[in-house]
């Protein structure tokens, strides 16, 4: 059973970062997450593989360029709050 509701996931950076990859797919809007590190910060916070990233720290990033979104997360410091939802819900 897939949860289609958007999820707010707050995480604290670990020894190897937040524990996920942020990807962009050619000719498709939105950024998606995969390679969520098992038991890593993102996993513990409730992020799942193939989730679509909607907000970073309360700011909607759906229409932001990829590099800007990566910069937002990197500049967030040791904690970041992401709003994600499953690909199907998006």
């Amino acid at each position: 059973k897939v949860n289609h509701k958007p999820r707010v996931c707050k995480m604290v950076k670990g020894p190897s970062g937040f524990g996920f990859n942020l990807n962009m797919v050619k000719n498709k809007p939105g950024l998606f997450i995969n390679e969520v590190q098992r038991h890593g910060p993102a996993d513990v916070a409730g992020v799942e593989n193939n989730d679509v990233l909607v907000e970073v720290n309360g700011v909607n990033v759906i229409n932001e360029p990829y590099d800007n979104v990566v910069a937002r997360i990197k500049e967030s410091g040791d904690t970041v709050t992401l709003l994600v939802c499953s690909k199907d819900a998006y």
């Binding site: 942020l22 962009m24 797919v25 050619k26």
Partner: peptide, 12 residues
């Protein structure tokens, strides 16, 4: 296959 179409990828 979605993986083959990934154009940007960053480990965070």
């Amino acid at each position: 296959n979605m993986i083959s179409l990934v154009t940007q990828k960053t480990k965070l």
